[in-house]
């Protein structure tokens, strides 16, 4: 028995015509059509293209919810083992349609899906995390190569084989870092790369430098004498005994503690549970991480209006960016509701 595959292509590759029929509604044709014929050859006896959905790029783009639902219904009835869309190369609307339908089918029907695109296709950024997008050339000149990669990856997906790194499998990575056991130990790989780099040869870094998110600065505090200031820390300062069981590293939560009655953080009442620095000093006097003593003094002296009654705290070591962002959003919302005007955040 061979595996069952359903394909998706646009009106052009489906032989219906060009832009003039871009509003072509989804239609199921039995067996392979267009690029599917070559794909079928590559699958050989292992898999069979049982049907092909042909849909106009304009139709999918303008009626995305409806088009998606119609295609989903067709695929649900056919119950294939794999869904293949495109390849869309650098065609924007086609890429978005391929990405969208693949993502929907994998998510709703739990059927593996894949498509093919040029890395700059807008469909890549939108759907790379939700399906497999094989890297292709910018135009149909790269058809043969694209289909070869797609057929190879497709069979692996159907069989549930363990996949290697994205660059080896030929798809555009989904933004996930995964550990592998490599052929050579790290020191040897490093020396190879270094000698290639010195010789001016091409080399492959194992991690490209990221770009970081920035935001425009919030407006400053105009009237500090009446401003409420909150203290926030990622230095892991908590009441002794860590009542909320914050994790010492890779934090998944933050906690808030009432400091309204306190003038000072004493080692009898507070401690550091942070797993990333020598906590000797913080445990002698937690104020070296959270400056409560000085904040109270300045509050009394009238340097600023009022100290917010709650301290927000977490541990910032090995904590994922996603979690840190979530803590920030939740704390930000609470502080806004509480009418806080500014924050002093200390990190270790």
């Amino acid at each position: 028995m061979s595996y069952r595959v359903v394909c998706y292509i646009n009106q052009f590759y489906g032989g219906k015509g060009g832009e003039e029929v871009a509003d072509f509604k989804p239609e199921l044709v039995e067996g392979p059509v267009g690029p599917g014929l070559e794909l079928q050859k590559l699958f050989g006896d292992e898999a069979r293209v049982i049907g092909t959905i042909i849909c106009g790029d304009g139709y999918y783009a303008e009626h995305i919810e409806k088009a998606r639902a119609e295609c989903l219904k067709i695929v649900e009835d056919l119950k294939p083992d794999l869904f293949v869309a495109g390849p869309a190369f650098n065609a924007g609307r086609y890429g978005v349609a391929c990405g969208d339908i693949c993502a929907a089918i994998t998510q709703s029907l739990d059927i593996p899906s894949l498509t093919g695109m040029f890395p700059e296709n807008p469909g890549v950024e939108l759907y790379r995390a939700q399906t497999f997008i094989v890297k292709t050339e910018g135009s149909a000149r790269g058809m043969k190569q694209a289909l070869t990669s797609m057929a190879r990856l497709g069979l692996k997906l159907i069989k549930g084989e363990l996949l290697g790194p994205a660059y080896e499998e030929g798809y555009i990575h989904r933004g996930i870092r995964k550990n592998f056991f490599k052929d050579k130990r790290g020191s040897l790989r490093a020396i190879d790369i270094l000698l290639q780099k010195i010789a001016g040869q091409e080399f492959r870094t194992e991690y490209e430098m990221p770009t970081f998110k920035k935001i425009p600065p919030a407006p400053p505090i105009k009237d500090i004498k009446h401003a409420t200031i909150a203290l926030v820390t990622s230095g892991g300062i908590v009441p002794r005994g860590n009542p909320d069981r914050l994790r010492v590293s890779s934090a998944e939560s933050y906690a808030k503690y009432d400091i309204s009655g306190l003038d000072d953080l004493t080692p009898d009442e507070f401690e550091s549970i942070h797993g990333g620095y020598d906590r000797m000093w913080a445990n002698l006097d937690p104020d070296v991480v959270v400056p409560l003593d000085v904040m109270r003094e300045l509050e009394r002296e009238g340097v600023f209006g009022k100290l917010h009654p709650y301290l927000y705290t977490t541990t910032g070591t090995g904590t994922s960016v996603a979690n840190a962002e979530r803590f920030g959003q939740e704390i930000g919302r609470e502080l806004k509701e509480a009418g806080v005007d500014g924050v002093i955040l200390t990190s270790t």
Binding site: K213, P219, V232, G328, G342, V343, I344
Partner: peptide
Amino acid sequence: MTREIERVAQIPV
């Protein structure tokens, strides 16, 4: 965390 507090609350950090 700093960036998201500032972005969500629109207060300086």
